[in-house]
C-alpha cells in the first residue's frame, strides 16, 4: 500500500538527488549522465574563480535575503501583537480573513496585480496623469526592483505569517498577565516581560528556517519579472541555475552551483540550530 508513495518519493526526490553527480561531470544531453566524462571539481571553478555572472547572482541573493530578514520578518510579529490585543473577536476574525487571502494567490496573480496598479500604464499613474501630475516608474526600473519585490512579499505573505505567532500568543496563560498586572506592570511591561518571551522560541525557529533558505529567494516571483528589469538587477542564485542550466544549456556548471547552494542551506540550518542550543533555545530539533 505504501508502494505508490515510495515510488514517487524515490523517483522525484532520491533519484534526482543522485542526479547531482552531473556537477562532477561534463554532462552532455545526447550521451546521457552515465556516459558523460568525469571532470572532478572543474565545474566548481565558476564559484571559486568568481565568475562575474555568479558573483552578481550571489550578491543580489544575499542583499534580498538581508532586506527580507530585517524589514519583512518583523512585520507579521507586529501585526500579530496588534491583532492579539484587539478586543473584539469579530473584528479580529474579519481582519485575519482578509489578510490571509493573498497567501493563496499564485505569484503570477500577485505580479499581475502589482503591474496593474503601479505600472507605467497602471491605475495610479493613469490617475496622476489625468490630474496633470508627474508619474513614477517602479515596474521595470532596476533600482526599484528590490523595494518592489519586498513590497510584493509583504503584501502576499505577511498576513499569513501572523498565523503561527497568533497561535503561540493564544497559548500564553492569562495568569501570567494577571500576575504581571498585580505586580503593577503596565501594557508595555506586560508585552516586554510576558508576550515577547512567549514568542521567542517560535522566532528562533523561524529564523533558523529562514537561514536555511538564505540562498533561495522568491524564484517564481523573480523569474516572472526578470525581463522587465534585466539580469544585472534581478538575477539570484535560483534564477541563475535556471538561466545558465536550462536556458543556456550549461548543465554541469549550473548543477554545481545548485548543489553548493543546497549543501550550504543544510549546513546553515544545522549550524544555526547548534548556535540556538548554545543560547539555551530548543531551536528546530534536539538530538
Amino acid at each position: 500500500m505504501a508502494l505508490p508513495g515510495l515510488v514517487l518519493l524515490l523517483a522525484f526526490q532520491y533519484v534526482p538527488l543522485a542526479g547531482n553527480v552531473i556537477a562532477f561531470k561534463d554532462y552532455l544531453p545526447f550521451i546521457g549522465i552515465a556516459e558523460s566524462d568525469w571532470v572532478g571539481l572543474e565545474n566548481f571553478e565558476i564559484i571559486t574563480g568568481g565568475d562575474p555572472r555568479f558573483v552578481n547572482a550571489l550578491g543580489n541573493t544575499l542583499i534580498i535575503t538581508l532586506v527580507q530578514v530585517v524589514l519583512v520578518f518583523p512585520i507579521p510579529i507586529c501585526l500579530a501583537l496588534a491583532m492579539n490585543s484587539l478586543v473584539s473577536e469579530r473584528i479580529k476574525r474579519l481582519v485575519q480573513s482578509v489578510l490571509y487571502l493573498p497567501h493563496f494567490l499564485s505569484w503570477v496573480i500577485v505580479v499581475a496585480v502589482f503591474q496593474q496598479f503601479l505600472g507605467g500604464a497602471g491605475m495610479i499613474n493613469n490617475f496622476l496623469r489625468s490630474q496633470g501630475w508627474d508619474t513614477f516608474s517602479i515596474i521595470g526600473d532596476p533600482d526599484a526592483f528590490i523595494p518592489l519585490i519586498t513590497a510584493q512579499v509583504v503584501w502576499k505573505d505577511s498576513g499569513w505569517a501572523t498565523i503561527l505567532f497568533l497561535a503561540v500568543l493564544s497559548q500564553v496563560s492569562t495568569e501570567l498577565y494577571e500576575a504581571a498586572s498585580v505586580d503593577g506592570a503596565g501594557r508595555w511591561r506586560q508585552m516586554w516581560h510576558v508576550t515577547l518571551p512567549a514568542l521567542r522560541p517560535i522566532v528562533v525557529l523561524l529564523l533558523i528556517l529562514k537561514l536555511g533558505d538564505a540562498l533561495s529567494v522568491g524564484f517564481e516571483q523573480i523569474i516572472l519579472q526578470q525581463q522587465a528589469v534585466g539580469l544585472q538587477a534581478s538575477e539570484v542564485l535560483d534564477t541563475y541555475v535556471y538561466n545558465n542550466g536550462i536556458v543556456d544549456q550549461n548543465w554541469s556548471e549550473a548543477a554545481a552551483v545548485g548543489l553548493v547552494k543546497g549543501v550550504v542551506g543544510v549546513v546553515l540550518v544545522w549550524g544555526a540550530n547548534k548556535v540556538a542550543h548554545i543560547f539555551g533555545e530548543d531551536g528546530l530539533y534536539r538530538t
Binding site: 526526490q13 538527488l17 552531473i22
Partner: peptide
Amino acid sequence: LVVISLFFSPGLLPTYLA
C-alpha cells in the same frame, strides 16, 4: 526516508533531467 527528503531538495536541474 520521508522526513529526510524534507531537508534535502534535489535541485532544479537534476529534477528536470529525471
